[in-house]
Design a binder for these strands. Structure first.
Lengths: 204, 204
DNA sequence: CTCAATTTTAGAATTGGTTCAACTTTTCTT
DNA sequence: AAGAAAAGTTGAACCAATTCTAAAATTGAG
């Protein structure tokens, strides 16, 4: 099983991702030439294309790691949320947003989002959509949890509300990464304001 | 003023847009080579780049026309909306969605959206963001109108609710254009369901 | 009508992502 | 341990967008 070939493969994957991460951050997505990534990862151009279908998929792998971390961090909040609806939502959304720029620059996010709409059927496009779905599910799960705790009216359509909240947050996040000068606190405040009506409506 | 030169310029613009529209629909955005657009428009490649900064800006001009039509169609609904909140929203959103595939194919929308996030500072990126803002404003205007008519509680934060509704709709539309097999009726039904809680909360 | 300014044109050069056929390396078989 | 098969690697060649150049065409002013 774990022969030489396996190890070399894993090692090359890692080297490519490391090289790409560094170069994407330094030079931007477009600025990071495949040739340079290959050189830095000490593989040939052809090998990169053997591991990833295209440049976007390399970015995709990085995005995937970031979002999975965010999802993990979110699980804690869903398990034991703050004791009122507004704070619970704000905490979960806060985790998403605060973690979002750990590995990825705004420019990398812009590219990732662009590629995921441009090529929805590419491996990355599909993975990105799946991640969005998981985030939506997590928000819906939080609503459900709050219903269990008696903090949200039981007759509320949890999944629909979860989608609404996620979609709004996601769109706000897109606008956020489009403007380099946009700041996280303002983003969070704007989302809180948008959610307020909804929070009032579903709380009991 | 309106000398020959002006007219010829306008004419070339139109020819380029017409050629691009046709080719984008036939061959897709990527498939429509600049060379082919130039040939069909009976101008040289250089001229195209004299009129538009890049291929994306040509698509941008087409998107702009489409969205402006949609905005115009929406004005009627805002002026005299159906007499209940749910129907009013559904009508306005219906107009947006039903008009959205008049000139643009799903593939063209995908490309347009991708470019607008990829290059938010390009002429097209800025124009696209501005159009989104106008659509948001129009939804907020509808809420305000419904407040005047006594159909929405006066203490509701209209702009915030408008943003929430637009952002959700927009995100749903993005997912819609990402899947070729997605259909308009299902899209509208999903959005109606998401808005239901909100409609119940703000109506009086 | 002529001239200067502006635009258009064709095409060559550039650029960077992607593909592909030939070559290596690893693994498997005996 | 040798030879063959399988898997993987390589970089030169390809393609299309974009830029650049110098020549040709068009326009408007005087």
């Amino acid at each position: 099983m774990s022969g030489l070939r396996e190890r070399q493969k894993a090692d090359r994957h890692r080297r490519i991702i490391d090289a790409a991460t560094a170069l994407f951050r330094e030079a931007g997505y477009e600025g990071a030439k495949i040739e340079a990534i290959a050189a830095q990862a000490e593989v040939s151009i052809g090998t990169i294309y053997n591991y990833y279908q295209n440049k976007g998929d390399i970015l995709g792998a990085i995005v995937s790691m970031e979002v999975n971390e965010v999802l993990n961090a979110g699980r804690g909040v869903v398990a034991s949320p703050p004791a009122n609806v507004g704070d619970a939502l704000d905490t979960l959304i806060g985790i998403y947003i605060e973690h979002s720029l750990n590995y990825l620059s705004k420019e990398m996010w812009r590219q990732a989002m662009a590629i995921s709409t441009q090529l929805p059927d590419s491996p990355f496009g599909q993975a990105y959509t799946a991640l969005d779905r998981e985030l939506t599910r997590q928000i819906s799960a939080l609503i459900a949890r709050l219903q269990e705790l008696g903090l949200v009216r039981p007759d509320i359509d949890g999944p629909a509300v979860g989608e609404l909240i996620f979609n709004n947050m996601n769109m706000m996040f897109i606008e956020f990464v489009k403007r380099d000068e946009a700041r996280i606190p303002e983003l969070r405040a704007a989302i809180r304001r948008q959610n307020r009506v909804l929070v009032a409506a579903i709380g009991e």
